[in-house]
């Protein structure tokens, strides 16, 4: 049936994750759950996407860029991980998915894009690196603007301050985590032993929070207390994305080993061309200083012809009186020496 392979474009990953974007992660894990034969392209080039964002699923000239649309399309193509659910459970999937978007997403957007520390330390550098050059100048800012509007317009308003909005958003998100934790209980996945699209969404939203090197924040510490949620997300990561986890661990080990090997010379590795740069800087400084001195007349170089006429040594022209500073008249000294030698 699927003669043409589906192509899925996602934000590229980091920190041992297949992608760092919650929605991309959700789609990726959904595809893994239901074994969809999909070609994953990890990219950061937003010109490839019609909406300027990922995930994007392309199949037979059709393009989908919203998570719900992608799930619906995959279900239509009979790639469903929700087929084992009863109708009541399917209804729960709809309800909980809406709750995630309504309560948890604003807090995550706030954390990644509006919280100054995280934005400056992690989010902006990451996107600036992931997106190719001319785009990287404005894509992070554009994404931040969108996140800001989303959080402030849907959760805030004219009647409350930004600080109040922030505490409201985080309070709702924590409550949402509690509800998810109750719903999960001590089951393996939300609806028993098989993962569903709801698990994919929860995984997408929560795993970056667990894995990313974020500065300490209330949401992350709250999530760590919901141990069953963390366990489920880590379980999905190791079961369905072993390649990424292994690659990350290998890289980490390699890096550590490199550091160990070089040990003392850590500062050398940090600045590989240190000596060359120092010499270049010194040369540049000296040249510019000399240039300045010459231009302003601090040093005056005068090059004179050694003698006016060979026969009349006594009528050598005297140096002009107006000149100041050291004068180089080596030729005369030499000539005098020669004179003495002849006598």
């Amino acid at each position: 049936m699927a003669a043409e392979k589906m192509k899925l474009e996602v934000w590229r990953g980091d920190w041992g994750l297949p992608s760092i974007d919650p929605h991309c992660l959700a789609v990726l894990s959904y595809c893994k759950f239901s074994r969809v034969p999909v070609e994953v392209i990890k990219t950061g080039n937003t010109w490839r996407s019609p909406t300027g964002n990922f995930p994007v699923l392309r199949h037979r000239k059709a393009t989908f860029s919203r998570v719900t649309d992608i799930f619906t399309y995959l279900r239509k193509e009979h790639w469903g991980s929700d087929s084992h659910l009863s109708t009541k459970e399917s209804a729960d999937v709809v309800a909980f998915s809406a709750m995630l978007e309504e309560k948890l997403l604003p807090a995550l957007l706030h954390l990644w894009w509006i919280d100054d520390k995280t934005y400056v330390d992690i989010t902006r550098p990451w996107y600036a690196k992931a997106v190719p050059f001319p785009l990287s100048l404005f894509i992070p800012h554009q994404k931040q603007k969108r996140a800001e509007l989303r959080v402030l317009l849907t959760k805030g308003g004219d009647h409350i301050t930004d600080a109040e909005t922030e505490s409201k958003v985080y309070k709702e998100a924590k409550e949402c985590l509690n509800l998810l934790s109750y719903k999960l209980g001590d089951k393996e996945y939300m609806f028993g032993r098989q993962p569903s699209s709801l698990d994919a969404l929860v995984f997408g939203y929560l795993i970056p929070l667990i894995k990313a090197p974020l500065p300490s924040n209330p949401l992350q510490s709250h999530l760590q207390q919901c141990s069953n949620l963390c366990q489920m997300c880590n379980g999905i990561l190791t079961t369905y994305f072993p390649a990424e986890v292994k690659e990350y661990e290998d890289n980490k080990k390699k890096e550590e080993q490199q550091k160990k090997n070089q040990g003392v010379r850590a500062d050398v590795t940090e600045f590989p061309n240190r000596r060359r740069n120092m010499i270049l800087a010194a040369v540049f400084a000296i040249t510019s200083m000399i240039g300045y001195a010459l231009a302003t007349g601090l040093i005056n170089v005068q090059i004179k012809d050694s003698e006016v006429t060979q026969g009349n040594r006594k009528f050598r022209t005297p140096p002009p009186q107006s000149l100041q500073g050291p004068q180089f008249e080596t030729p005369r000294v030499l000539e005098e020496q020669q004179e003495n030698g002849e006598e």
Binding site: D92, V94, A95, F96, A98, M99, E102, K103, E175, N178, L179, L180, Y182, K183
Partner: peptide, 11 residues
């Protein structure tokens, strides 16, 4: 049940 109810309310 309570968490399910809250989920439906957010929906």
């Amino acid at each position: 049940d309570r968490s399910e109810m809250r989920a439906y309310m957010s929906m």
